[in-house]
Design a protein around this nucleic acid. Structure first.
Lengths: 203, 203
DNA sequence: AAGCGCATGTAAAGGGTTACATGATTGC
DNA sequence: GCAATCATGTAACCCTTTACATGCGCTT
C-alpha cells in the first residue's frame, strides 16, 4: 500500500487538500501510481485518524487542507529508508506480447506500430518537461531535483519501450509471419498441444 | 481485468490445470502480471461457466485440466486485436523516486546502488534466457517466438532501469547533497518544511 | 438565474492477497 | 507409515474503480 506514503510525501512539500492531491497525483504520479479521488479522500481520513496528518485550514467552498505531522514525516522517511522496495510490475502491454502468436500478422504489425507511437510520444513529452526543469524553469529546490530524477526514469523507460516495439515489428516480420493466410482466415484450433504434462517443468 | 485473457492465452497453447497455470504465471508472467492461485482458481471457474473453457480431463490426485473452447479462442483474439491497450503502469520504485529529496544522501546512495544491482541482475537473467531461445533450445514454435519478444521487452526495460539508477546516483551526488559537501557530513534533519501555501494551485 | 468548475464525500462492486483448510499420491 | 509435494479450494480482508450524490462560489 504505497498510496499512503505517496500522499504523505506530497504533503511533506506543504499543506494541500484532497482535491489538490488528486490533481497532483494525476499530473505527476498518474504514470507510475494511479489514484482516484475516492481512494484519496478515504486514505486522508485514515491518515488523519492515525495522527500522521492533521487539518491545516478550511478554505472557500468545503475546502479542507491537511498538513503533515512530525509523526507523518517520520513515517515517510521510515518507508523510504527501511521498507523493502516492492518491485512488482504490472504492465498489460507486455502481458499481451506473450500472446502475439495468436494474432494475424497484419493486426500485430498495426498493433506494434501504434504502441511504438504511444511510447515515443510519451517519452518526448517527458523529455520536454525534463528540459524545462534543466533550464531551471521550476526552480532549483530539492523537490524539483527529485522530480527531475523521476522524469529521467520515465524518459528512459518509454524510450526503451518505443525501441522495443520497433525491434518487435522487425522481428515479427521475420519470424512470426509464416505462410499465414493472406486470406484473413485462420484455423479454428491452434496447434494441438502435447497432452497432459501433469508435473512437467516449464520455462 | 487481464488475468482472464492471460489464462485464455496460456490455455490456447493446450490443456492445463489450475496448478500448471499458477506455476506458469509465476515463472513466465510473474514479472509483468502477478497472480496467486486463489485468483486463478476462481477465474477458471468463471471462465468455465462462461463457456470459454471446459474441463478436459481429470488426472491423478484431484487434478482437473481445462481446455479452451472455440468461443474462448475467439475471445482472446478479440481482446488482442480489438480491445484498447491499458497503458497503466504501477511501479513503486518510481513512486519513491519522487520523494528522494526526503532521504539522507547516504541512504539514497545506498538505495540507488541496491536498485541498480537488482535491475541489472534481472536484466542479465533475462538475457541468458533469451540467448537460450535464440539458440533454439526451446524449439522454434510461434509461441516460443512470442516469448522471445516478451523477453526482449524485459531485457530492455530492466537494462534501462539499471542505467537510470546509475545515472541517478551520479545526479544525486551532484545535485542532491545540500551544499555539495565534500566532507561527507550532512545535517541530521533535512530542510524544514516550507509552511503555508494553503489554497495554492499546484504543478 | 443558469451553468460551470471546485470540492467533498458515500456505496457498491470488482480485483487481488493472505491465511487457512484439506485431501491424494509418491518416494522413502 | 511418514514426509514432501501435488492439487484444489474457501474466507476474510484489503486495495481500487465506478457510479452516484451533494453543495458552494464564481462568472455571465
Amino acid at each position: 500500500m504505497s498510496l499512503r506514503h505517496g500522499l504523505l510525501g506530497l504533503l511533506a512539500e506543504g499543506p494541500a487538500s484532497g482535491y489538490d492531491l488528486t490533481r497532483r497525483f494525476a499530473e505527476l504520479l498518474g504514470q507510475v501510481w494511479p489514484a482516484r479521488h475516492p481512494q484519496i479522500y478515504a486514505e486522508l481520513g485514515r491518515l488523519a485518524e492515525a495522527g500522521l496528518i492533521e487539518v491545516d485550514s478550511h478554505g472557500p467552498r468545503q475546502r479542507k487542507a491537511y498538513r503533515i505531522t512530525g509523526a507523518g514525516l517520520a513515517e515517510v522517511r521510515r518507508w523510504l529508508t527501511d521498507d523493502e522496495v516492492d518491485h512488482t510490475l504490472r504492465m498489460e502491454p507486455l502481458l499481451r506480447s506473450v500472446f502475439f502468436w495468436l494474432m494475424e500478422p497484419a493486426d500485430l504489425a498495426a498493433h506494434l506500430e501504434r504502441e511504438r507511437q504511444y511510447y515515443s510520444g510519451t517519452a518526448a513529452a517527458m523529455r520536454t518537461y525534463a528540459g524545462a526543469k534543466d533550464r531551471g524553469e521550476f526552480g532549483t529546490s530539492e523537490q524539483t531535483r527529485s522530480l527531475r530524477i523521476a522524469a529521467e526514469a520515465g524518459i528512459r523507460l518509454f524510450e526503451a519501450l518505443a525501441e522495443w516495439a520497433s525491434w518487435a515489428e522487425r522481428y515479427a516480420a521475420e519470424h512470426l509471419t509464416e505462410h499465414h493466410s493472406e486470406t484473413g482466415h485462420h484455423s479454428e484450433h491452434p496447434p494441438a498441444l502435447p497432452e497432459g504434462r501433469p508435473g512437467s517443468g516449464s520455462a
